[in-house]
Design a protein around this nucleic acid. Sequence first.
DNA 1: GTGGTCTAGACCACC
DNA 2: GTGGTCTAGACCACA
Lengths: 131, 131, 131, 131
Amino acid sequence: MIKVDTSSFVPIYEQIKKGFKKEIFRQDLKPHDPLPSIRDLATELLINPNTVARAYRELEMEGFIYTKKGKGCYVSDDSTQRMTEERKSILARTFDDVIEEAKKYSLNPDEIKKFFEERLARSLEGTKRGE
Amino acid sequence: MIKVDTSSFVPIYEQIKKGFKKEIFRQDLKPHDPLPSIRDLATELLINPNTVARAYRELEMEGFIYTKKGKGCYVSDDSTQRMTEERKSILARTFDDVIEEAKKYSLNPDEIKKFFEERLARSLEGTKRGE
Amino acid sequence: MIKVDTSSFVPIYEQIKKGFKKEIFRQDLKPHDPLPSIRDLATELLINPNTVARAYRELEMEGFIYTKKGKGCYVSDDSTQRMTEERKSILARTFDDVIEEAKKYSLNPDEIKKFFEERLARSLEGTKRGE
Amino acid sequence: MIKVDTSSFVPIYEQIKKGFKKEIFRQDLKPHDPLPSIRDLATELLINPNTVARAYRELEMEGFIYTKKGKGCYVSDDSTQRMTEERKSILARTFDDVIEEAKKYSLNPDEIKKFFEERLARSLEGTKRGE
DNA sequence: GTGGTCTAGACCACC
DNA sequence: GTGGTCTAGACCACA
């Protein structure tokens, strides 16, 4: 399910792109699966169809989806492969960002590690109970 | 040392604000310490002075710094106290975000932990050599 | 000079992209040269700024230009190299299209060749006299 | 044989119209010859019957074909005459367009001629082997 | 002043 | 119904 945070600095169309890339990577969306129609998703997210259209257009330019005019947008054949290529660098960057953030606040690497594991454990508990 | 990533979606003035808040929390900047002049920092970061000015203006509005006209900007008396209030929730939220992100991409908690420690170790190596 | 034919089936933003690619290839635009501002070009072509913006955005995504926020758009360092890569395939496709077109109308390859040279000669005369 | 390029900006119905006009000019389709049925052609081209229907409708409006209700579409009596009127200007324009295009990319007229003949020769080889 | 994002709403090609 | 293009005009970050 795609979510969007309109108060974030990240543009909405980027959040949508990211959302679908994750779904593709997790294989919640498999090759040739249809994406929601532009108008439907726009309605659901309470945003303008043009914004969704831009996200879809860029996903197509990057090769993750393809468009059948008048029919809809579908996940590409080689989408999973593309994601695997992108995934490592995305994750690495995300972790590096948070580490740099944490280093600035707490300095001690052991503290960072401990804090991270604490949050991770907490997050897993939440998952076990449902979510 | 303040750093800025112009390719990030986060506005530059926000990155500057964040940077100083961290320095204040780490007590690298103590009450009544002077901030670099707007022009110097702008020159150093290769950005426009207006952008630095905005960051300083908002830091002042939030009570972290105060301005002596014609002299410069200085860290507030109660700045550290303000930061301690904000800190824990900020860090927890940052970590939770990245964990949620990683869970979406790799699913396995052990993989997340391993990957995190890998990036952390890597980041520490970089630090040893200088930065 | 960029021109646009609003009655063409080719989208305006594509015509603009094509136009700049040609100028770059011909080195009328060299690395780090500024492109006209979005608003200026839109005014000149009597089209909407958003349409120019889309062309610029895609040129940037394809690596031909780069953007300095608040300043303008500039030709990339390696733009000429990129064009050289794209050029042969573009030209080949264009010629193949017209040959297929001509074959369907006149059948005889010699006629095609003769007709082509006739038009080419005619076009060159026009060029000599000025244009 | 009608071909269609779905990735082209030219609307599919236009490509179909163009295709039949060429067949009529080449007299592959003579007056009172039947056109393929809308459904058959749509199936063959993997497109929607409505698209074929539109092409036929416009060809009829332009006088190239006529329709017998319940039977099908047929080439008009005076279709060849119509084509001969249109032909020369169409071909000349097509060639002029491609020459102008090539001039913008390669400048040198001899290069243009050489490149054209190269593509022409290549295209003829392809034809000999079948296509 | 610049470009970037987003909205609202039009028209078109195609299913 | 679908997506694609374009317009008009708003607000924001940045120079």
